[in-house]
Design a protein around this nucleic acid. Structure first.
Length: 579
RNA sequence: GUCCCCAUCGUCUAGCGGUUAGGACACCAGCUUUUCAAGCUGACGGCCGGGGUUCGAUUCCCCGUGGGGAUGCCA
């Protein structure tokens, strides 16, 4: 046994939002580290200059934080919010874009050893090579006869073409002992001399990941299975440098319910469909400009209107084109009115806005590809630390099942609400976070005491959005309250109908109620029912309709308490006067 | 094209040569209920196909089929 401390890392690139598969990888890395008393590190792989965005970076950090996936070393979130790429920890920088000197010094070692060389094929030339390859022939880059290791000479020979650096892949079989995939031999003939420094001077993923994992003393590389076939590249690089090879564990992939890859393209397609529909409905010339205008005003600082119009035009015409900026896509979705239910949930933020509880999500995603083997399924994050192990990780790709997630959500929330004060407080905090994420200032404004009562009153909710939906009418100003005609008719509450008389009667009882508490209200109403030979179900839905406009509300007594004596009387008497 | 990985109810999975193939979610039925939910009870439902190996294969091997990944100046 070695005494090397366990150190795992999650290394997202800020080119998009944190999706649920990435969240799972991050979580399992964290679980493994914690289980072994080690550290979980966050590194930002921002080497793709064309696709990086500050919006993505902040989004990813926010989502990790919301999930409770904090890290021992990595970006300084507060600084990043201010627009600085600052980080915390002894093995930094943790932004690859700030490690160029390090990469270059390692690169020079390779060049000096003759294990790397300059190359200057254009992307078109490489594509042609691949396309022209004969069947049975390994296609792709072929190592030149003479390797150029001097940069100046390379520049001269390239004649103005951009130069990059390739690694001389050794002609030996690479053996990888993967903790999930098992021992595997990778013969050299399937590997060609891959690029390690791009022509813009940035290292490629394969190069940076090797240098960084070694320097950051990562003991276990836990990542998605899509990287498995590339692992021999990394091991070959480690061997060239004489660096240690970390333990590898490649996780099975997570797909959507159709068994397809989760991608922002999926979201994009839906938005595009609705955008086209929206434009089609607006007869008359320049509705594209109108769309751009509205999208822009929905955005705090989006692109200029004309630029946006051009972008939208190109986007609508090309079925394969995707809006790269998540915020812009969301804004379009809002403007053209894509229903919430139609928006594919892929990113962590989608689930947050849909009203899921972070711990339920963690529980569910941990079980995608891993199983404790005991049949147990419901775990808190702390329990997961105890239970988790790499041995029980399967090699089989999994599909994401939203309904099961919903069920987990219900269970976690219910468990908390039937637990102690600490647990109930967690729900309160999480519910408030949800309300903030969807911008429901009205409910946020009722205060913690009422919010807590509300959570208690709406028993058995599945999502926070369920609580919100059912509670919202309770706190609407009376002038904005709409009565559902079907409910009104069903309860016989239209003028002249018998239900109205009953409601009048019970309104009197409530008016004379001295103590406005759940128990007192219940006793009073039940007493009134008893005198008349009525049951609660004869009157409760009528009160609900007058109170909320529909027959659906949280439990009746707490609802009355939440609305308060004045509010209730205003609503009941208002209903009896009007409608 | 080439290489690699995978294959148990609709979905996530347990199983690691002998099991009435277990659980969870979904679905369906019933019960319960002041609404929506929730809860309770029950039912339905599976070893991809073909060859081997073996006294015996869901389990081990081979082939096929299907799915996925890699083969990028993306990560």
């Amino acid at each position: 046994m070695t005494s090397t401390p366990v150190r795992t890392r999650f290394a997202p690139s800020p080119t998009g939002s944190l999706h649920i598969g990435g969240a799972r990888t991050a979580f399992l890395c964290k679980l493994f580290a914690k289980k072994h008393g080690g550290d979980f590190i966050l590194r930002i792989e921002d080497t793709d200059q064309a696709r990086n965005s500050a919006e993505s970076l902040i989004g990813i950090l926010d989502d990790l934080k919301w999930l409770g996936l904090d890290f021992a070393e990595g970006p300084d979130i507060e600084a990043v919010r201010r627009g600085e790429l600052k980080d915390i920890g002894p093995h930094g920088p943790y932004f690859q874009s700030q490690r160029l000197d390090i990469y270059n010094s390692y690169l020079q070692k390779l060049l000096d050893m003759g294990r790397a060389y300059f190359a200057w094929e254009t992307p078109e030339e490489l594509a042609a090579q691949r396309n022209n390859a004969q069947p049975d022939e390994a296609y792709g880059h072929v190592r030149p006869k003479v390797l150029v290791t001097d940069e100046n000479e390379a520049k001269r020979l390239a004649g103005g073409k951009p130069i990059m650096v390739r690694f001389v892949v050794p002609n030996v079989t690479v053996h990888v002992d993967d903790l999930v995939m098992g021992p595997t031999d990778f013969p050299p003939e399937h590997l060609n001399d891959f690029v390690i420094r791009k022509s813009d001077g940035m290292p490629t993923y394969h190069f940076a990941v090797v240098v960084d994992d070694a320097l950051m003393q990562i003991s276990h590389v836990i990542r998605a299975q899509e990287h498995f076939s590339n692992t021999p590249k990394h091991v070959a690089l480690q061997q060239a440098f004489g660096l240690p090879t970390p333990a590898y564990a490649h996780l099975p992939l997570v797909f959507n319910s159709q068994g397809k890859k989760m991608s922002k393209r999926e979201k994009d397609k839906v938005v595009k469909r609705f955008a086209k529909k929206w434009l089609g409905e607006k007869a008359g010339g320049n509705s594209l400009a109108v769309l751009a205008e509205q999208v822009q005003s929905a955005l705090k600082d989006g692109p200029a209107s004309e630029a946006l119009t051009r972008q939208l035009d190109a986007w609508l015409k090309d079925p394969d084109l995707v809006i790269p900026q998540g915020a812009v896509r969301e804004a379009i979705a809002d403007v053209v009115g894509v229903p919430i239910a139609e928006r594919p949930e892929i990113d962590v933020s989608d689930f947050k806005k849909a009203g899921f509880y972070s711990e339920a999500i963690l529980n569910y995603i941990a079980l995608l590809g891993w199983s404790p083997g005991t049949g147990e399924e419901i775990f808190t994050p702390e329990e997961l630390v105890e239970a988790f192990n790499l041995e029980q990780v399967s090699k089989t790709n999994a599909r994401f099942d939203r309904k099961k997630l919903v069920s987990f959500n219900l269970t976690h929330c219910n468990d908390d609400m039937s637990g102690d004060v600490v647990l109930k407080d967690k729900q309160l905090v999480a519910f408030k976070q949800y309300l903030e994420s969807v911008g429901n200032a009205r409910l946020l404004g009722i205060g913690d005491v009422k919010l807590r009562l509300l959570l208690e009153a709406k028993k058995g909710w599945r999502l926070y959005s369920d609580v919100e939906k059912v509670a919202d009418p309770l706190f609407l100003p009376l002038s904005e309250l709409r009565y559902d005609p079907v409910s009104v008719a069903k309860e016989g509450l239209n003028p002249g109908e018998p239900g109205r008389e009953l409601l009048k009667g019970v309104t009197e009882v409530l008016k004379n109620q001295s103590e406005w508490g759940e128990a007192g209200l219940e006793a009073a109403v039940l007493g009134w029912c008893g005198e008349r030979g009525l049951e609660l179900k004869d009157i409760a839905p009528k009160i609900r309709v007058a109170l909320t406009g529909t027959t659906v509300s949280p439990a009746l007594w707490p609802s009355l308490v939440l609305v308060g004596r004045e509010g209730v009387m205003e609503r009941l008497e208002g209903f009896l006067r009007g409608v």
